[in-house]
Nucleic acid binder design. Structure first.
Lengths: 334, 334
DNA sequence: TTTGGTATCGATACCGGCACCGATACGTTT
DNA sequence: AAACGTATCGGTGCCGGTATCGATACCAAA
């Protein structure tokens, strides 16, 4: 169109016959501009194809329109839904999410947080409460709203939205015992890095103990939690312990794998063997067998966290870090 | 630590007893600095806790370390895996992905692209080849590497990585006919907005026609593609057309729902009824019934697209837009 | 000694916006 | 007519880096 490079505010101002400042004010709806000027500037902006430059305005206005999001993985549908909730919340605003993936690695998490902070984001959403001490210091000194999500078992740096995994594990144990189950196995994957799954397991065994019961066995797989792993681990654990009447999985993916094994092996679920997972993934309810699960409001968590940040940016005063705990609902299927 | 605000390059320079320029060069490994200065500056940076400011360097260096990513949805595991591939590719570089969600809306897509462009990204990855004319103009004039992903049926603006959905639909039809299927139904969701699903359907019916066959019926659901919708639609379509021996779904989620219906209804799959989907989602192979699917390399697509952009940024010369077509592999399960 | 080359460094001028404050125009009050 | 208030606008100076080019020091070559 105009040859080389993108139009700047100066081009718009020149085309409209006003100063840069007036053009700037007109375009972003700041006061002190006549209606006539506003229209002239808008028209000029359209003509030259002005797009604006967030980098410049963020640098100048010492507050960017970027929201940093740090998650352990995006290939996991749970975090994808969190992202989706965040995207929903900032829809309409000029905010844009920029994300980093930690692969459940604390050192990598530190690097990602550092990197994202260097974009001067308006706020930061990070997964979990168990960052390294260095990372927490970074978050504390950042002087922007920080929201830690998914977990509430611990001390948040600032804001916090999530569920108590410890309580979720406990509640599930109690529900299963109430159903008459007594011979439990636990099947999980990647427990060494997934601190939240560990908290659920702790709550689960604690509650069992309280009821005079114990886990018959525990089987921890290598690698990521997948349906396939769940199917294999279930097959293995049942071969060793055929007397089990209930398996608690670290999440729904594994539990679904267990369900598939049972269908293939002709095991009656939930009569002979009861399966329980965590998350309440949507497809669970369409499964041909009943899986018990704790439904977590993943999208709401993302949405709420983003809203916390939007709010904190609106009001000058830096409020106390906001806190919201959701309680997972146990779904028995039907 | 130092009281109010983050340390800047000037602080580092002062602490190291050199000029801003020398500090800048030392920290980013540009030449023309003595080893001694480099160490002094590094030490000083560590002491004052320097984090850098991407906004400033991007504005100054007229090239940012941001990669824009535009996807129709993140709640869909397919695009989540694409993001995962992108994250993997830029791991180690200073690049950071910033993403926008279009919800399959062309106007919203235009807005998102515009918004992301205003961050002066180093490159842009957008889903599909079927943007609005306005959006395409934006992409063309952006003067940065643009990679359109997932689809190759059409004319890319610049780079392109994906699969031919038309060919995938065709290949699936041919494979199913070869297996002896003759009475086909098509079940899909959201066809009005999902242009790639539409291309698969076109290829599928075209191939059937070529083989002297026709779709017995087509059932298009409202809303998003979910396992639940697949189960319901399958139940409905089988009630109306019990003679069907094959259903082609717009994707694997729906097909899995179909499989669950068949398990619950006691229909022999694949003997009585063959089910075919699209995507090759991981959990398909663990299903207790065999579903046929076209496996697409989603993570590779994301990774390759990001690599295209990294490459284009390395070399000064703006090369021809790069192009890579993957061929989906039909998996019959086993 | 003079010349020339290389390695190292710093001053200056931006990048593209926005905050701040002063200037101007015009209508109103006294 | 003088003084004042309000609405509208523009100049200047940064935000925190980097590109560019010139300056300086030091050593080898002529």
């Amino acid at each position: 169109m105009d040859g080389k490079v993108r139009a700047t505010l100066a081009d718009v101002a020149a085309a409209a016959g006003v100063s840069k400042m007036t053009a700037s004010r007109a375009l972003r709806g700041a006061g002190d501009v006549s209606q006539k000027s506003i229209e002239k500037v808008r028209q000029a902006a359209r003509e030259v194809g002005y797009v604006g430059n967030h980098l410049a305005s963020s640098l100048s206005g010492r507050r960017s329109d970027l929201i940093g999001v740090v998650v352990p993985s995006v290939a996991n549908i749970v975090f994808a839904e969190v992202l989706s909730g965040i995207a929903e919340a900032i829809e309409g605003s000029t905010m844009q999410p920029v994300f980093g993936v930690t692969d459940y690695g604390p050192e990598k998490e530190y690097g990602v947080i550092r990197n994202i902070l260097s974009w001067n984001p308006a706020g930061l959403i990070v997964t979990g409460l168990d960052q390294s001490a260095d990372a927490k210091r970074l978050l504390k000194e950042a002087d922007i709203p920080v929201v830690q999500i998914m977990d509430v078992d611990g001390t948040p740096v600032d804001g916090c939205v999530g569920v108590s995994h410890y309580a979720a594990g406990k509640a599930m144990a109690e529900a299963l015992v109430k159903m008459g189950r007594t011979r439990f196995a636990y099947v999980g994957c990647g427990l060494d890095t997934d601190t939240r799954a560990k908290k659920r397991l702790a709550g689960f065994t604690e509650a069992l103990l309280h009821l005079g019961l114990n886990l018959v066995t525990t089987r921890i797989g290598e690698g990521r939690s997948t349906v396939k792993a769940g199917r294999e681990l279930t097959s293995e654990v049942l071969a060793d312990w055929p007397e089990l009447d209930c398996i608690y999985y670290s999440n729904d993916d594994l539990a679904a794998g267990g369900a598939f094994h049972c269908i293939a092996a002709g095991i009656a679920v939930p009569e002979t063997l009861t399966l329980a997972g965590f998350n309440g993934l949507d497809f669970i309810e369409s499964l041909p067998t009943r899986i018990i699960t704790s439904r977590t409001p993943r999208r709401e968590i993302g949405k709420t966290a983003a809203l916390f940040i939007l709010e904190a940016n609106d009001k000058k005063r830096q409020e106390e870090g906001r806190f919201l705990e959701f309680t997972p609902v146990i779904e028995f299927g039907n």
